[in-house]
C-alpha cells in the first residue's frame, strides 16, 4: 500500500516541469488562499440563495452545520496529527520529487485542506445536489493540486476526504443536541435582517 502511495505521488509529480503554464495553474490552485476562499464563498453565497424564506432557513441551517463541520475537521486533523506523525513525501523522497509548493512542516496525514473542502462540499450537497457536486470537484482538485505539487500522498487526500465527510455527518447529527439554540440564533440573524 505504501509503495503504491509513493509510486503514485512520484508519477504524478513527475508530470510537472513539462508545461510551465500548467504547473503555474496548479501552484495557484494549491495556494493556501484560493480554494479555501472558494469554500467560504460557497457557504456565504448559499446563505443568501434560497428563493423562499422556508428554503433560505433550510440553507442557512445547513450552512451553520457546514461552518461548524469545517472548524471541527481542523480539530480532528490536529488530534490525528499529534497521535501519528507521517512525514511529507518530499522529506522521504525529496530526491525524486520536484517540489512546486513551500515545504509544510506539519504531518502529511490526513490532508487538512481536503478535509475542510469535503466538509464544506457535504453541507452544500445536502441542500443543492448540483452545486454540491461542483464543490466536491473543487475540493478534489485542491487535493490533486497538492498531490501534483509533491506535498501529500494519495492516501492523505483520501484520509482528508473521509475525515471531512465523517465530521459533517457527526456535526449534522450533533445539531439536535443543541436545539433550540441553533434555530434561535437563526431567528436573531433574521431580526438583524441578515437571514
Amino acid at each position: 500500500m505504501n509503495t503504491i502511495d509513493v509510486n503514485l505521488v512520484i508519477w504524478l509529480n513527475g508530470l510537472s516541469g513539462n508545461v510551465k503554464i500548467f504547473d503555474d495553474l496548479m501552484r495557484v490552485i494549491a495556494s493556501d488562499y484560493l480554494m479555501p476562499l472558494v469554500f467560504s464563498l460557497a457557504m456565504f453565497g448559499l446563505w443568501f440563495s434560497g428563493k423562499t424564506p422556508a428554503q433560505r432557513v433550510r440553507y442557512q441551517l445547513q450552512m451553520l452545520v457546514g461552518i461548524s463541520a469545517l472548524s471541527i475537521s481542523n480539530v480532528v486533523v490536529w488530534i490525528i496529527n499529534i497521535n501519528w506523525y507521517r512525514p511529507r513525501p518530499f522529506v522521504d523522497h525529496g530526491d525524486q520529487l520536484n517540489l512546486l509548493f513551500y515545504p509544510p512542516t506539519d504531518p502529511s496525514f490526513p490532508a487538512n485542506p481536503v478535509a475542510v473542502g469535503f466538509a464544506a462540499a457535504m453541507a452544500a450537497w445536502a441542500v443543492n445536489r448540483k452545486f454540491g457536486w461542483w464543490m466536491f470537484a473543487a475540493a478534489s482538485l485542491f487535493g490533486l493540486s497538492r498531490l501534483y505539487a509533491g506535498v501529500f500522498y494519495p492516501t492523505d487526500i483520501i484520509g482528508g476526504a473521509l475525515v471531512g465527510i465523517a465530521v459533517y455527518g457527526f456535526t449534522s447529527y450533533f445539531r439536535r443536541f443543541l436545539e433550540p439554540l441553533v434555530t434561535s440564533f437563526l431567528r436573531l440573524m433574521r431580526g438583524l435582517s441578515a437571514a
Binding site: 504547473d23 503555474d24 494549491a30 493556501d32 509548493f101 513551500y102 515545504p103
Partner: peptide
C-alpha cells in the same frame, strides 16, 4: 507570480 503567494504561515 504563480507561486509568489505560497509562503508558509
Amino acid at each position: 507570480l504563480a507561486g509568489a503567494r505560497n509562503v508558509n504561515d
